[in-house]
Amino acid sequence: MSALQTVKFYQTGTFTVGNRLLAPEERSVQANMQRTNSLNSGHRACQGCGEALGARYAIDAAMNATNRQLIAANATGCLEVFSTPYPETSWQIPWIHSLFGNTAAVATGIAAAIKVKQQKGQGQDVRVVAQGGDGGTTDIGFGCLSGMFERNDDVLYICYDNGGYMNTGVQRSSATPSAARTATTMPIGPEPGNPFGQGKFVPAIAMAHEIPYVATATVADLRDLENKVTHAMSIRGARYIHILVPCPLGWGTASHDTIRMARLAKETGIFPVFEAEYGEVKSALAIRRPLPVEDYLKPQKRFAHLFGKNPAVDTIARIQAQADKNIRRYGLLAKEAS
């Protein structure tokens, strides 16, 4: 017999693995007819909404991993608003929305209640996911998030990062990238757009809490996202997954470009995709073909002021430096490409 031929994936040129080529148990949760459709169709998200896509994959994966024993707490924001214009709800799972900034704490409360009920022999082992946008996570919900991390409560917190307060009309958050135009960082004045030297990368801060699991993901690599959620649900304690979810409305991108934008964010090094355990990076998704940040910036209207007749070369270079730093810090360059 000849040696096993290594499988090559040609069909898209994106290194995406087609389900057909995988063993059934390795296929994506979404490929399964039995998937839960936790976030069902009919919601009111914009066409091409990265957040809706990310949430659908993440929660279905968590449902799958927990044998459908899952409760979700949701922060105020696009995801909450577009999914529950009552009396309609897209959620097929027990779901609660309390406030904008308290979702991690609400999830802690749910987990505590489940624990007591189980001790009393009154309930199954149900798991908890908390979810919110970047504003609800990195800004207003940050205190509750840090508290939940620090206590190592048994909650998976998922942040859908679209780089701004989209639900209220695209204002700046602490996750808005440098130079980006938002309604509160207009492309005017001596430093157009969101100032450099501000903002924070919450996955790194989550790691500083030494929690069992921190991961980042994008909606460009949905299998990776599913795997991370699945892995997260196999662990007890505080876990954090930060998903980059392009927002056509806020970014000024075409609806059909959502996945392309997420992929470009990763392939330029703008958004590092990695996993960490107890504060240490364990793996990173390699950039196969490093691309200049212009490729990522150009299609987005929120960066339009950097281009045109007189491109803001210096600003673009500063963004490139940020990406390069990510590449160095998280070891993002694939061996074959370097």
Partner: peptide
């Protein structure tokens, strides 16, 4: 059969209470 949670603020205290009460626990 009681979970005692030292939270990081009163805002969190009431929020934890909301989560646990909504999950059927006397809070």
């Amino acid at each position: 059969d009681c979970e005692f949670i030292n939270v990081e603020s009163e805002f969190a205290a009431m929020s934890v209470a909301i989560g646990s009460s909504a999950t059927g626990a006397r809070t």
